[in-house]
């Protein structure tokens, strides 16, 4: 119940090729996240899965059934939109039940489904309100409720949290994670935020410029990025990239090291520079070291540290955590 298979999906808008051959399989019950910079085609791919957009070529299968010619309602999917997309003239209850009414589901069954979803999302007090009378977070929960009520094989989320403020975003993220465990449904979730991707996903699909850069679990992507793009995209602060000559590396073009795998000291290390800025976050301290021709290196240290700006320090890399990239930006294993 709820597997997905995409084969060689291409999509062009006029002359512009937006998706350049996407192959992907999603197992039943998996939480898969599409992540990538804005404009890389994530939403387009999601809309193709939903049937809201026609693929130029390629096949979409849900539960082993070819879906290319099926309209959205027949695909067993539900979608949560970035803008919530609630029906402005309907109450919360009617927003949630419209889909089932259209599908001619029995009244009692609709009532129980709606009740179940509202209690899951603690929306009981708002059932008779219109979307205009709800806060952003509540609207987003109604949108999620509307998806749950349909009991889909496949949940599709398109950047559901990006219109919420930071605190609410963390809360809703936890709720979505809990929901996935409770429903054990297949979920496909689009975001441009790598933190969201790392915290929620069973598997992450990194998209860039219309093709898949790498597919893997969050830790696989973190520990074994296939190329420089994935290495730079996953992890925060971003991985440092240094031209190989700067650190005396002969077999690579670029060397990458994550900020958390660098230690600072006064003894001679791999690079030396002057402190240009220090960010103290309490739990972490981020130090930016200006290393001249090697560029600005960010270093993430745990706990509180005090470094004077303009003081000279040297950076030592954890040798087991250095990534090497060739001229095509692929990782050298």
């Amino acid at each position: 119940m709820g597997s997905l298979s995409l084969k060689n999906i291409h999509k062009s808008f006029g002359d512009v090729e937006v998706l350049k051959g996407i192959d992907l399989t999603v197992e039943d019950g998996e939480f898969v996240i599409f992540v990538g910079p804005s404009g890389c085609g994530k939403s387009t791919l999601l809309r193709i899965i939903a049937g809201l957009e026609d693929e130029t070529s390629g096949t979409v299968e849900i539960d082993g059934e070819l879906m290319n010619a099926q309209p959205p309602t027949k695909r067993g999917i539900a979608m949560v939109f970035q803008t919530y997309a609630l029906y402005p003239h309907l109450t919360v209850r009617d927003n949630m039940s419209l889909g089932l009414k259209q599908a001619k589901v029995a009244k009692e069954e609709i009532t129980t489904s709606v009740e179940l979803a509202t209690s899951m999302l603690s929306l009981e007090d708002y059932l008779d309100r219109r979307p205009a009378e709800l806060s952003g977070g509540q609207r987003q929960r109604v949108a999620i409720g509307r998806a749950i009520v349909r009991k889909p094989k496949l949940f599709l989320f398109d950047e559901p949290l990006s219109n919420l403020d930071a605190a609410l975003r963390v809360n809703t993220r936890l709720e979505i994670a809990a929901l996935h465990r409770k429903l054990s449904a297949t979920m496909i979730y689009v975001t441009h935020d790598q933190t969201e991707a790392m915290t929620l996903a069973d598997r992450i699909v990194v998209l860039n410029g219309g093709h898949v850069e790498q597919v893997g679990s969050p830790m696989e992507l973190y520990n074994n990025p296939a190329n420089k793009f994935v290495a730079g995209f996953i992890g925060s602060p971003q991985m440092n990239f240094i031209t190989a000559e700067q650190v005396g590396e002969k077999n690579a073009v670029t060397v990458g090291i994550r900020p958390e795998h660098i230690s600072l000291g006064t003894k001679k290390g791999d690079l030396s520079g002057t402190v240009s800025h220090v960010e103290r976050l309490g739990g972490d301290t981020n130090v930016y070291l200006d290393c001249g021709s090697a560029g600005l290196i960010s270093v993430r240290m745990f706990g509180e540290h005090d470094f004077a700006v303009d003081s000279k320090l040297s950076a030592t890399f954890d040798p087991s955590r250095i990534y090497r990239f060739d001229a095509q930006d692929n990782t050298i294993v």
């Binding site: 939903a50 999917i77 979608m79 939109f81 609630l86 029906y87 259209q102 509307r146």
Partner: peptide, 26 residues
């Protein structure tokens, strides 16, 4: 918003209903 019309399509509204029930009132 396209999202609103798309939400209607997923909920199984025909194009006529999307026109009559979602777009015209707005």
């Amino acid at each position: 918003s396209d999202d609103l019309k798309n939400a209607g399509r997923i909920d199984g509204l025909s194009e006529y209903r999307i026109f009559g029930r979602l777009v015209l009132p707005l």
